[in-house]
Design a protein around this nucleic acid. Structure first.
Lengths: 127, 127
DNA sequence: TCCTCTGTTCGATCTGCGTCGTACCGTTCG
DNA sequence: CGAACGGTACGACGCAGATCGAACAGAGGA
């Protein structure tokens, strides 16, 4: 198998999404995935975010986000790649991702002095 | 004083809003206020929602929602009236209220047989 | 004035969940 | 085959927060 089960976007409720996004670590996770823009290795997501957690904790958060319909996981050999479900989330909850993006720009710029990646200019409004 | 302190909408962050809306009781509260449409007495908010909590708990939730910038409280004689900050929330987080509304229609219609107030048609995008 | 009503504040309690460590599994490579 | 790596599953721990009850505070009304 190369894909991991994920809920159909129509079955996703805002209640579950809100609960998933209420945690600061998961919010950082979503913002980092959004900044990355495409498939990212799980262990590399939090690079440069200043967040350091155990790998079991990370796995737990990724599962919560996946069950909430926010991210998609793909198996690539030895590792799992994850990405935001941009189209699905934008269709089901228009404007949600851009809400999360707003503060992200200010926060990542202020909290990650070691990272040199400035936020890609094309991500502010588009995909 | 007839008004209760509330944060300026520009200082409200999505992080706090998400945490406030992550609780099922508070979500019910917001949806009930949205369905009501205007100033509502605190003790009457949960009428017909099936949610029964102590008054101290209700006071706590209202305070959380107010601190999150979602609702406004006005003192009216012996009682406190609360209402959604439609304009402010729509301006700061466009689309957020309609996201909460989606499930609301199905839920309130199924859970409140005694209430005869259909959701006002003008609330979908405006105040 | 006294009672009632509405709401807040303060402790105390308890549950949910975020976190960690360990064990386990599948994949890749030497 | 066996070791290393990325990730998951499970149990345990600890803390934040949801809940409650009681006490208190204003505002109205009898």
């Amino acid at each position: 198998m190369t894909e991991v089960i994920e809920p159909a976007i129509e079955t996703v409720t805002i209640d579950v999404v809100l609960s998933a996004l209420a945690d600061p670590v998961r919010l950082t996770l979503v913002r980092a995935l959004d900044a990355a823009g495409d498939w990212t290795c799980g262990s590399d997501i939090l690079r440069g975010t200043g967040v350091t957690i155990g790998k079991s904790t990370l796995s737990h958060h990724i599962k919560v986000l996946r069950d909430a319909g926010l991210i998609r996981t793909r198996v690539d050999g030895i590792r799992r790649l994850v990405t935001l479900r941009y189209d699905d989330v934008d269709q089901r909850f228009p404007g949600l991702l851009s809400m999360l993006r707003d503060n992200d720009l200010a926060r990542t710029a202020a909290e990650t002095p070691a990272s040199s990646h400035q936020p890609p200019p094309g991500l502010t409004s588009g995909r």
